[in-house]
Design a protein around this nucleic acid. Structure first.
Ligand SMILES: [Zn+2]
Ligand SMILES: [Zn+2]
Ligand SMILES: [Zn+2]
Ligand SMILES: [Zn+2]
Lengths: 144, 144
DNA sequence: TGACTTATGTTATACTGTAACGCTAATCCA
DNA sequence: TGGATTAGCGTTACAGTATAACATAAGTCA
């Protein structure tokens, strides 16, 4: 999906949920969209500063947190980063396959990906909570 | 395993591998053993400072890195922490099930736990690399 | 309008981790 | 043994990540 249509869908998504995709939040989302794969908060902050002059970490962290809450981004803790979610209509957790070589990211549905593991740990009495997950490895292109 | 026998096994383990479990490294390992579950580097640093006066982050990070290299600890990136490995004889990656409520940690073998997921992603052309992994959830005791 | 809520700006600081330098202790080899 | 070499450690300084706390501005609604 190109950035323009993503943004307009995001607008509608927020409107439906009764929350405001403000100028700042929209701008931050655009900055994230500009990058492929995982983006760091301080990278976004730097981009924002280049555009609008002085800005402090809370400004961008708050916007990013909002976007995560709305399902537009996933926060990828293992990488201290954020990544755009292409299917934010349905709430879900992501399972991210990050290529060590090229940095590209594949997103799967975590619930599906972990179903057999969940079944196994259930036998130990452990219930796995919904969560994002990152696995590193090597993608098809880089394996060649 | 109690701390004393763990430490003596760790001594032997290092001797076999031809590396030195120095006074400092041994002390750091003891400090990690004192805690249940995941321990933070700066927690260990604080403990160390209480015992031996001033100490700086590199002192403890270097010791922790050494212990990880020897397989005595796992570094749990998702939690910015370290955890004792009870079966350091064989090299392996851990899959940690961390209870959200009580903080206790169960360790499984990552390769086994992820085998079916690996098979699934292999069909996408993505090869999952060996790595430690953390899943949060609720343990048997806390579920009741 | 005024009260209230939400969003943003601003300052300061906590937490996590590493680079780089120099010194000392251990190891190795002639 | 003595001298070279390496490994371990202390120390300073700093980079990167994230949040608390408070002030101000903008939107909402009676
Ligand atoms: Zn997603
Ligand atoms: Zn790749
Ligand atoms: Zn282990
Ligand atoms: Zn528990």
């Amino acid at each position: 999906m190109d950035a323009v249509s993503y943004l307009s869908q995001a607008e509608r998504h927020c409107a439906q949920r009764g929350c405001r995709l403000t100028e700042l939040r929209r701008r931050v989302l655009e900055l994230v969209l500009r990058h492929d794969g995982v983006v760091k908060a301080y990278q976004v902050l730097a981009d924002l500063q280049r555009e609008r002059g002085p800005a402090a970490p809370p400004t961008v962290y708050r916007a990013l947190d909002f976007l995560v809450e709305q399902g537009l981004l996933h926060r990828v803790e293992a990488l201290n980063g954020f990544i755009v979610c292409e299917h934010f209509e349905c709430h879900h957790d992501g399972l991210f396959l990050v290529c060590q070589d090229c940095g590209r990211v594949l997103e799967l549905d975590a619930a599906q990906g972990l179903s057999s593991l969940c079944a196994a740990t259930a036998q130990l009495g452990f219930t796995i909570a919904p969560q994002n997950l990152v696995l590193t490895g090597t993608c098809k292109a880089c394996l060649a």
